[in-house]
Write a protein that binds this DNA or RNA. Structure first.
Lengths: 234, 234
DNA sequence: ATCTCTATCGAACGCTGTTCTATCGTACCT
DNA sequence: AGGTACGATAGAACAGCGTTCGATAGAGAT
């Protein structure tokens, strides 16, 4: 049962020579270029110029591959987040970090499905969680309230990003159908509903039509943060 | 290309006779009994006493099967939610409905991954969305604020439920390892982290250890609702 | 009796994650 | 130098998946 520990130097004539780094980098590249469904062991092996089974020396399963790939890119996000100035207002700091995390997941929706799934493997995710929590130490809260607050925020960030970034139905991916037209089709269906049975849907259909994802997330985040500010009495 | 429209009466001697209803019911039963990985066309066909390809007469793909199965059980949730008394406080009403929806998804985490994914197929989900939105009509908000509020709440509900209910790592499923021991193992790892580098994690590790999922969700929901109440000036 | 349309099904296809077994190549030991 | 242990690679096979194809049974209309 091989478990990590690596360093593979220059390769021979025909045999490929990988490294944990290269495996994760290529895995992420594959995910970025063609979505989660494109990340297969065969595709990854071809990209690395080696055999399928070799990947299993670095990683025990596809789940672990995704866990490690996730933590790999979260490392970059962590750096971004650590570069943010804390400032005076802890809640504003929390907000800035959340927006950065959200942007990262929105671009790579698969992150949301694996982020913080296993903190044993995902060291960077744990550090990011710590970073998100630190501002709450400056607020007048109980330990439990702090725990719940950070959980709530990560849920909003990850939940929103996953929801908004979930793979669109092919037509949109192909570019044959724009996002606005896609929303518009639903909006049109909604508008045809009975006005007495669906008063709310009618009320918001114009807002839904062509709405901005980031604004929608920001609104959700700000509701939570407003509640938190109230709780902290600040 | 066959598309719904059914009614299949009594079966002959060896040929099976299904119906949309029976397909969805058995699909849900399979999901409930052994989790999402147990729902395969072959397993479902065996349960229905028929062939694999027959299912494709009722459903065009596995995605559609899951969409329809989701809406099937959401129908029951909708009935529960419609039975709730509105009461005087719109936000409290919203809260009660959210808790009901959360409970439903917590028991069936796969719901979260498909809920509201396609309102064309998921009529009940749309009706539920409407129900969740109606209380906001009684609040002093703009249409956009209402839209964002309901989006925020569904994100919190679905996000929390999916997060908390995601398939535990087999040992827990087998019953070999209790949930508390599972949490405790992580807690133990966290406690060994450097106290200066991880002040927040140390602060909350006792809260994390053996925490209650529902309480955690309720805290997240209440933060959002507090923010909403503030926004509505009520 | 034949035709048509709904509904069913076995068998096959191409793909997936994973495992088995065999091997290459380097570093170390004598 | 020769032998050996081990880190690392890889081809081939396996079982299972969603999906498609083509054949066909049964009921009702002509």
């Amino acid at each position: 049962m091989p478990r990590h520990q690596n360093r593979g130097a220059a390769g021979g004539r025909r045999r490929a020579s990988h490294s944990m780094e290269s495996v994760l980098t290529e895995a992420v590249a594959l995910l970025d270029e063609a979505g989660p469904s494109a990340l297969t062991f065969r595709a990854l092996a071809q990209r690395l110029g080696g055999g399928v089974a070799s990947i299993y020396w670095y990683v025990a399963s596809k789940d672990e591959l995704l866990d490690r790939a996730t933590d790999h890119v979260i490392g970059g996000v962590l750096a971004e987040i650590e570069a943010i100035e804390p400032g005076d207002d802890p809640i504003y700091h929390l907000r800035a970090m959340s927006l950065t995390l959200f942007d990262a997941i929105l671009v790579r929706p698969w992150l949301g499905n694996y982020f913080m799934r296993n903190t044993d493997v995902q060291g960077n995710a744990l550090r990011l969680y710590e970073k998100l929590g630190q501002p709450t130490l400056r607020l007048k809260l109980t330990a439990r309230q702090r725990f719940h607050a950070v959980s709530a925020i990560t849920t909003v960030v990850v939940g929103s990003a996953v929801d908004l970034g979930q793979e669109p139905p092919q037509e949109v991916l192909d570019g044959a159908l724009g996002r606005d037209e896609f929303l518009g089709r639903f909006a049109a269906t909604w508008r045809e509903l009975d006005a007495d049975d669906f008063p709310f849907v009618h009320e918001i259909v114009d807002e839904f039509d062509g709405h901005d994802d980031i604004e929608q997330f920001r609104a959700a985040l700000d509701l939570t943060l407003a509640g938190l500010r109230l709780q902290a009495g600040a």
